[in-house]
Design a binder for these strands. Sequence first.
DNA 1: CGGTTTTTGAGACCGAGTCTCAAATCCCTC
DNA 2: GAGGGATTTGAGACTCGGTCTCAAAAACCG
Lengths: 127, 127
Amino acid sequence: METEYETRPREAIARILRAEPRFFSAAELCARLDESGTPVSRATVYRTLERLAAKGEAALRLNDRGEATFMSCDNGHHHHAICRSCGRVEDVACGALDSFVDRLRSLHGFQLDEHSLEFHGKCRSCV
Amino acid sequence: METEYETRPREAIARILRAEPRFFSAAELCARLDESGTPVSRATVYRTLERLAAKGEAALRLNDRGEATFMSCDNGHHHHAICRSCGRVEDVACGALDSFVDRLRSLHGFQLDEHSLEFHGKCRSCV
DNA sequence: CGGTTTTTGAGACCGAGTCTCAAATCCCTC
DNA sequence: GAGGGATTTGAGACTCGGTCTCAAAAACCG
Ligand SMILES: [Zn+2]
Ligand SMILES: [Zn+2]
Ligand SMILES: [Zn+2]
Ligand SMILES: [Zn+2]
């Protein structure tokens, strides 16, 4: 079968992600891990992030350069408000979009089953 | 000064984009151009797409693998409904989101100035 | 401690996108 | 239509994020 081990690399990565509500690129994580004295190979960083995303414990986001970034994230459908200055992310409940979807179905004949929504701006401390 | 020339590569690319309301990757465009007998180098394809996007005549979208894709697109703020089966895209006017933004400003203290919204599903002909 | 399974790391590899610079093209003028 | 200066193009080297491989290391269990 497929038991799961708890390893130092995995714990170090989870610790960094949990400490800050923002998206990290794989490269950023590698750098942090090097600094903190528990270096982890790129391969392992990617594997761990992919695993967290699959379990729904991390959100995957492609930044504007197409690079994958990850953030510790609760399960359940919601959206993100991202500070373009410091990177801080706040969760945003998804309301008001259902009526939108209904209207689209009748207006365009599109059967929508998914959407993505993202806000950008400046957070309290960066204004 | 910086005059702009009208060249065969640019016209061939624009023609392909205008013919279908969907996003094309650079690789896809290269293939199409090869088939249609007017091959264009990758470098030129990228340059032309970047130029169209800068002029607001094309929309840039990163697909789920992080690859840049482009679509002939009108100016002005709106969103897209994308068919996950055939790729057809329909424009969606942006309403109902302003109230959202206002609520977020007071609720989170976030000063939002931009958002991205995208719908996925099946279009009329693909249901 | 063994023995078994899972995980890790170094580095080869891949593919999208960028850069370079000489050659080709465009366009304007005569 | 030929000449000439400005712009664009293309082949291919290059960069860099991400994946893959496989032997060595670590985790777990009794
Ligand atoms: Zn901020
Ligand atoms: Zn939503
Ligand atoms: Zn369709
Ligand atoms: Zn909008």
